[in-house]
Design a protein around this nucleic acid. Structure first.
Lengths: 109, 109
DNA sequence: TTCAAGTTTATACTTAGTAATAAAACACCA
DNA sequence: TGGTGTTTTATTACTAAGTATAAACTTGAA
């Protein structure tokens, strides 16, 4: 067992995939992320993130059949593994426990 | 506006400081983080993070008076700025909206 | 003058983001 | 029917930003 931590973008990618029931591939992930974060996200950024997440065991994937539309080449479909889901839960817990203490006070500077 | 984003560790540091009312310096931040994350955190990691966060305008700081204990030199005390607080809120919102969609399904692999 | 409690710097490693290339499939027309 | 173009997607190579470790420096009380 090694590092198994989540980067900030990796976390968003995992969450996006978890919301895309069996239909998660680079383009649909990109769309979801752009909608939720309200900023543009490049395919390459997603791709490298997907690779790392797969290596860490947080994602599994398989190639789909090609579809009968123009340019409809086969996609690589991703899914969050059990390990991925627990990693998400864990970082969520940590942040929540810190938020409980949090109180913003006006600055003295 | 600017690209002011938060790294995963930067976010934890900000949250920790927000919970340490006027008493946040490197060592107390370290303690809080170790308690909440249950893993060891180095001073240097915190320090570089504090620097970046200050440059981004998410933290302000001042030196304290020395204390009367052995080795009690003056500490640099940090506080979350208004900008820092909103950055935290924003990333929290994004994650929450993604969690709403999230549903983990057993793998097909 | 020694030592504890801090801060700061140097450096290596990991994640994130950009840009460019490659490949698979359908459309369209000579 | 074969070739060229266009769309959709995957992949790789490179650069920038963030994270981690370790060691060096500073200050002040004992």
């Amino acid at each position: 067992m090694s590092k198994r931590k989540l980067g900030e973008f990796e976390e968003l990618v995992l969450l996006a995939i978890g919301g895309l029931d069996y239909e998660a591939y680079t383009v649909s992930i990109q769309q979801i992320l752009e909608v939720h974060t309200n900023r543009s996200v490049s395919m390459g950024a997603i791709y490298t993130s997907l690779e790392r997440l797969s290596k860490k065991g947080f994602l599994s994937s398989k190639m789909s059949e090609p579809t009968a539309e123009r340019g409809g080449k086969s996609k690589r479909i991703y899914q969050v593994t059990y390990a991925g889901e627990s990693a998400l839960q864990e970082t969520r817990m940590i942040r929540e426990s810190l938020w409980k203490q949090f109180s913003w006070s006006p600055s003295w500077v």
